[in-house]
């Protein structure tokens, strides 16, 4: 089955090669869960703080997914300063 996965903020770096913008379409076996997706993309579980399936909050990582659903995953309030974080302030002002 195919599931659309969207990763935001500091989780963007876990998107597979060639993904456009914030999302990728994954081919998953029937009955695959949110946890399986995290494993496949190597997203640490503790970084998946806000998880939504088609916009509805998903409290359990064991939730099975279905064909055509959209899975949105955010870090804690999109936390985590990426390596690229703050550019030099010398350009400023």
């Amino acid at each position: 089955m195919q599931v659309k996965v969207k990763l935001f903020a500091s989780l963007r770096k876990y998107l597979p090669e060639g993904a456009a913008g914030s999302q990728a379409t994954l081919e998953l076996p029937e009955g695959a869960t949110v946890r399986d997706v995290l494993k496949q993309l190597q997203v640490p579980e503790e970084m998946a703080r806000i998880v939504m399936i088609d916009g509805e909050h998903c409290p359990q990582l064991d939730q099975p997914l279905s064909e055509g659903q959209t899975l949105s995953i955010f870090p804690p309030m999109a936390g985590g300063q990426g390596e690229e974080d703050t550019r030099s302030a010398r350009d400023c002002c």
Partner: peptide, 21 residues
Amino acid sequence: PVTGEGLPGFGTAVLVHVINE
């Protein structure tokens, strides 16, 4: 994670996708 990382890293604008999704 919010006041130590999220807000310093992205500011409040990070909410655009959270609220939209």
